[in-house]
């Protein structure tokens, strides 16, 4: 783990005070995964949005306040679900390690 280091993309130019940001990074064995997809599911499990990770494995959502689930899909890995709470004016930064449930190739 990299302690307090925040894994999400730069917040420069983002109006954080008026958004409920959920962001982070997808890792496999400590390396960023650029070809992953992160889905945002609402409190009932319903799909709300999805983004591909950036070249540096990062992603960001502008959610509403409340409880959400991040579901991460990547080649040669099983889907990983992570619960996260969003609040206006707060950036929820999440590190997702897909290696922990990787399927043996």
């Amino acid at each position: 783990m990299c302690g307090a280091t925040q894994g999400g993309p730069s917040l420069e130019g983002v109006d954080v005070a008026n958004q409920a940001v959920i962001q982070g990074i997808v890792l496999r064995d400590g390396e960023p995964v650029a070809s992953a997809y992160v889905r945002l599911l609402d409190r009932t499990g319903e799909f709300t949005a999805e983004v591909p990770t950036s070249a540096t494995g990062q992603f960001r959502f502008f959610a509403g306040p409340g409880e959400w689930t991040l579901r991460t899909l990547a080649p040669r890995a099983e889907a990983v679900d992570r619960a996260v709470v969003a609040a206006k004016g707060v950036v929820a930064d999440v590190e997702i390690d897909i290696a922990k449930v990787a399927v043996d190739a």
Binding site: V14, D15, N18, Q19, L40, D42, T44, E46, F47, T48, A49, E50, V51, R60, F61, F62, A63, G64
Partner: peptide
């Protein structure tokens, strides 16, 4: 749209600024 957009709790998909 997603249930939260339908209800008016969000104005745009959650990967875009609201």
């Amino acid at each position: 749209r997603s249930p939260d957009e339908y209800a008016g709790r969000l104005l745009a998909p959650a990967h875009l600024p609201q």
